[in-house]
Amino acid sequence: MTRNDLEAGAASSAPVILFQNVEVTYSNDVRALNGVDLRVDEGEFLFISGESGAGKSTMIKLITGELKPTAGTLLVNGYRMDKLRAGKIPALRRTLGVVYQDFRLIKTMTAEENVAFAMRVFGARKSAIRERVAYVMDLVGLSGKMKSRPTELSGGEQQRVAIARALVNNPSLIIADEPTGNLDPIRSYEIVELLSKINRLGTTVVVITHDYELLRKFAHRVIYIEKGNLAGDRVLRETGKEPGPV
């Protein structure tokens, strides 16, 4: 699959994420993104790669509504992020699932409670929570660890719980910010394998990573950000090229 193929396929469906000439300049005059154009379609799996400070996290912050573009147009799950009022951000976030490098699990809660928490804050029925939590915990392969607390789980298992939590409200888009940053290579592979499985079930997945080994092992689209610019957009395993600007 090439970038052109992806773009051709994408034309038939609405974009889940659409950056059009997006710029971000921070208050200290540092320009984090410099006219980025990017389209991510429904059902896609996208890696965002690049060196530290390149602008990857800025892109995630834009997608989750933590930041507004200084210029350009940004569409996420049908929301115009450049024009989105603060009061509408919660509604946008209910369509997303976010996974972080440091898992962000609540240590006083069990794995099951951590996942259920994301449903409980919306007042979901207990029976619905029980059913859905059991499903996603099974999906991430942690049915047997429901009652374990984060401190009793390995890093990989904690990240699986975080993925289950991101999935539990059935989002159409999962954003994972360096989800393998704290894991060894085998666990990292397992986590991306799990995210790929979720993607095959129909959820669009965007993963930020520094790990070039992972980019080589998985035949997913990769975009490379360099100094706030989109410097590369391809599928590594098929092209056989090293990661980096095209």
């Binding site: 989750t64 919660p90 976030r93 997303l96 962000r104 609540i106 928490f117 804050v121």
Partner: peptide
């Protein structure tokens, strides 16, 4: 604060 951060990220409203 972590709980609040997670609540915000999953889309809980500030008022809640």
């Amino acid at each position: 604060r972590e709980e609040i951060g997670i609540m915000r990220m999953v889309g809980a409203e500030k008022s809640m």
